[in-house]
């Protein structure tokens, strides 16, 4: 995803002279192409994320379109006050791009995990929160984010994530994308768990369970019309994210449900547990330990449906 980000931001900077790329001393060589086309609009801001964010605010106030990039925990929680006050309070068009989100850097320890960023970013007024599922979504999200007149946070994985889109879908910020249709259950996934949701749906199909899968890339603002359709149509809805179940995407859906639905729907929220994850050797290993692989998720869903039959 990060290569796609570099490619797209380069394209955008080529055609829009207001684009300024700020990076926090990461991405060695990643931005070589960018630096060739717009060397004067690239700044390595060093290992000083707080300053980077507020400089972005200053640039935005002066008519530029800053895109600030570094590892997810360092572009979100490390500089939260700067994001809240300088970007959100002033409602400035700055795009924050976090790489290695969720458990992408599992083996680096909790300093490099981000399982609270969705919760925190979506609690900030004026902020738009987008979690990208694959390179196609990275490209489309960044392109659309450029048109937003306010702060946007784009959450990405690292690299080599599987593609969920084989062609360009219609991508609008705040509008979910239906990937498969099914009648028994609906899985609404966000970001780097969408691919897993697709796998889950395939596994469920073997058990004659047909699943609708939605990529809900925009966590804020939520696609309320789509949610209403889903909650009217399905008795079982699952949310899926690589993020703490406290406060994340699933919580956002649950909040919407409590406020808007007058009938009972069984909502199953799947995400990471409310604890720091350590002693894992890879993202795959972490997902295995915390039941975030397709198989245990499919089992869990299957159990819920079985119970209903009794």
């Amino acid at each position: 995803m990060r290569n796609q980000f570099a490619e797209t931001v380069t394209e955008l900077a080529r055609t829009d002279e207001r684009v300024v790329l700020l990076s926090g001393d990461i991405g060695n060589r990643l931005f070589n192409a960018y630096k060739e086309i717009a060397p004067e609009r690239f700044y390595n801001c060093g290992i000083a994320e707080a300053n980077m964010i507020t400089m972005a605010a200053g640039l935005a106030l002066s008519g530029f379109k800053p895109v600030a990039y570094t590892i997810t925990p360092f572009i979100t929680t490390r500089c939260l006050e700067q994001i809240k006050v300088d970007l959100c309070y002033h409602n400035l068009p700055v795009i924050l791009v976090g790489t290695g989100s969720g458990l992408s850097y599992a083996e680096l320890g909790a300093t490099h995990h981000s399982c609270e960023d969705i919760a925190i970013m979506r609690a900030l007024p004026n902020m738009t929160v987008i979690c990208t599922a694959d390179t196609t979504e990275v490209r489309l999200a960044l392109t659309e984010a450029m048109k937003v007149d306010g702060p946007v946070y784009i959450r990405m994985g690292k690299k080599n994530e599987p593609n969920v889109h084989c062609s360009d879908p219609i991508f609008n910020i705040g509008k979910g994308i239906s990937l498969t249709e099914g009648k028994d259950i609906c899985i609404i996934a966000t970001g780097n768990m969408v691919a897993t949701a697709m796998e889950v749906s395939e596994q469920l199909l073997e058990k004659q369970i047909s699943t609708k899968v939605v990529s809900m890339h925009t966590v804020k603002p939520l696609d309320k019309a789509l949610l209403m359709n889903i909650f009217n149509e399905y008795k079982h809805v699952v949310t899926l994210e690589e993020h703490n179940v406290v406060g994340g995407f699933g919580s956002a859906v649950a909040e919407w449900y409590v406020d808007n639905c007058r009938h009972y729907v069984n909502l199953l929220r799947i995400g990471t547990p409310d604890r720091f994850i350590s002693h894992v050797v890879s993202q795959q290993d972490a997902r295995k330990k915390y039941q975030l692989l397709a198989e245990p998720i499919a089992d869990k869903i299957n159990k819920v449906l079985e119970k209903e039959k009794i």
Binding site: I47, P73, F74, R78, E107, L108, G109, A110, T111, H112, S278, H279
Partner: peptide, 21 residues
């Protein structure tokens, strides 16, 4: 217990988790 960054109390002699600079 040995990883790319120290975890809190991962081994004798290391109490503090660092990795975020």
């Amino acid at each position: 217990p040995l990883g790319e960054h120290p975890l809190p109390n991962c081994v004798s002699g290391v109490e503090i988790a660092t990795g975020s600079l």
